[in-house]
Design a protein around this nucleic acid. Structure first.
Lengths: 107, 107
DNA sequence: TTATATTATTGTAATATTGCAATATATTAA
DNA sequence: TTAATATATTGCAATATTACAATAATATAA
């Protein structure tokens, strides 16, 4: 009926799926690509750099913020987004563990 | 207007997003969890193990197969799904590269 | 062949996601 | 204060996803 049955899965499975969901759009990959490569945490150029409207970029940023991958601080008149490296590493480890859990004795 | 503008993003960004999209549902995580832990590549128990209907499991399996993460072979009367380890490692590296691309000099 | 078991496909309904125009809010500068 | 700039929110339309019942297709066993 069109609704994910989250309750039948484990918290770990749901968490991993939710993280993947944030990465499951090229605009959000592009945003993370761009933000993570900025020397000085310069911010929203994103609308120009990526080529989606300001409301759309704002929504994507919000999805990324919801899982804690970005932290925002005001500097001057610009709201500056930076990668939250603690969370970044945490999610990297989460994915790493998932991929390393494969049974190498499988056919 | 409800359609992802894939053309404005790079092939790498779209590919990563498409991989993440497959992982972005707990049923597919659960399927990969289960299949990867089977010693003998035994198959569909998945309907019983996971608790979704047979058509739904079949659809999820298809999404996973589309990116090459599963290979299926007939053995006896059962269609047996196994992890495609080459693709598995390839996608692991893809995600690994993405996560390692962060600029550690960011604020 | 027929019966049984497994998987795939089709059709449909409910929900979620994507994108933007219009608007509101917030901050800085004058 | 007011003007200018940046970001967030709302409302809407188009598309995508999720799930399952019903059915079809495939393969094995009898």
């Amino acid at each position: 009926m069109g609704i994910t049955k989250s309750h039948i899965f484990s918290p770990a499975q749901n968490e991993l799926a939710n993280v993947a969901k944030v990465l499951a759009h090229p605009a959000r990959i592009a945003i993370l690509d761009y933000v993570s490569k900025q020397e000085n945490c310069i911010c929203n150029d994103l609308v120009d750099v990526i080529g989606l409207s300001q409301p759309t970029i704002s929504q994507h940023l919000n999805e990324i913020k919801k899982i804690g991958l970005l932290k925002g601080t005001f500097e001057g008149k610009n709201l500056c987004y930076c990668i939250n490296r603690e969370k970044w590493n945490e999610l990297q480890n989460l994915l790493h563990s998932f991929f390393n859990n494969i049974n190498q004795n499988c056919c």
